[in-house]
Design a protein around this nucleic acid. Structure first.
Lengths: 192, 192
DNA sequence: GACAAAGACTACTATCATTAGCTTTAAAAG
DNA sequence: CTTTTAAAGCTAATGATAGTAGTCTTTGTC
């Protein structure tokens, strides 16, 4: 194989993620990415199908890491379903705060296609299992949707600086998640 | 006043909003906007300070309409705080579904600056009042943050097509909001 | 009828993503 | 050790975009 390559696809994706996280999505360009890899922009197209394709790969990697953070949080967490979900919520929020730009990119379509639904489904089913321990199976999808919405929404509002009225945001977050789960518990105890 | 203008700032903002809603933010450009106004792109800069400035004005208009939708929903709603907030949540979601592109634009910074905090504060205080009827004053900010996060998060996940596993999303949304409020009610009844 | 100025236009710059086609290079073949 | 070759990088170009500078047009006013 003549002419050994100076980069590979994996390194491009990794560097793209790092660049986006460091400088923000707005500052990201194929040209800047190429420069940071010691190469010229057109060379990237040998490994990547285009900007959108690349960002999709970045998003997949972001989701992988997010779900890895879930796994880690759940191994250390207690047994009770509600406590596990609270731990999950805090791990989720911590991840988003540690990776604000790539998190936001992964969850705001804005033209960029999202990764395969199949993969996401595999990642989310265990969470629904835990939720079923609180609400019962039939309600678990609805309850999980709401929980993810609450977490995602809270984090997005924080990242977009829309919760500027002071107070302890971590505490507010924890209280809100706890209230949400309590509400579902109450319902499942008392019936609709 | 010689040479009567063919557009004014207000019309530009209105048309920009309409264009974004019709074609999506990605398809929006100063040039496309100018064409739709029967004018060339550079002419717009006489009325608008630049793309970001224009989009900020669009966002302000979007927020005004969102809060107008709140007001309307609250006038028709019952007396009990929880019922009022449920009505508010559904009005919020309906607005976002009716204006998906401009809603998303208004709530995802991505370089575009957001409108004045002062205005937003005025819009949000009445909601906190209602929430205080459920949780009491000290917890009302935390509880409101969580509620807005839940609603915003749910809507964002819907708009970004991340809730694709079937079921009645409106029902899941309503159940989740109800559970959330129930959780806070329970807390305030039983203490921390 | 001449003029002043508001307002729109053309022409230009700079930045992107992306494509086409040429050049370089190091490994493999002789 | 030279020649071949194909992968990989590069330059140059295209077309879209935001934004700027300076010119031309229109029209109310004198």
């Amino acid at each position: 194989m003549p002419y050994p390559s100076q980069v590979d696809r994996e390194e491009i994706v990794r560097q793209a993620r790092a660049l986006i996280e460091r400088e923000g999505e707005a500052a990201f360009s194929m040209s800047a990415l190429a420069t940071s890899l010691g190469v010229k922009a057109p060379s990237l197209y040998r490994y990547v199908d285009g900007r959108d394709n690349l960002l999709q790969a970045v998003n997949l990697e972001t989701l992988r890491r997010l779900f890895a953070a879930f796994d880690e949080a759940l191994t250390d967490a207690p047994e009770e379903p509600a406590a596990r979900l609270v731990a999950l919520a805090h791990a989720y929020r911590a991840f988003a705060h540690a990776n604000p730009c790539s998190y936001e990119l992964a969850f705001t379509s804005s033209g960029v296609r999202r990764p395969d639904e199949e993969i996401l489904l595999q990642m989310v089913l265990p969470l629904q299992e835990i939720m079923a321990g609180i609400t019962g199976k039939p309600l678990s999808l609805a309850a999980l949707r709401g929980l993810l919405a609450l977490i995602h929404g809270f984090v997005m509002l924080e990242l977009n600086e829309q919760l500027q009225r002071g107070g302890d945001l971590r505490s507010d977050f924890g209280q809100s998640v706890a209230a949400y789960l309590r509400g579902w518990q109450k319902r499942s105890r008392e019936g609709p």
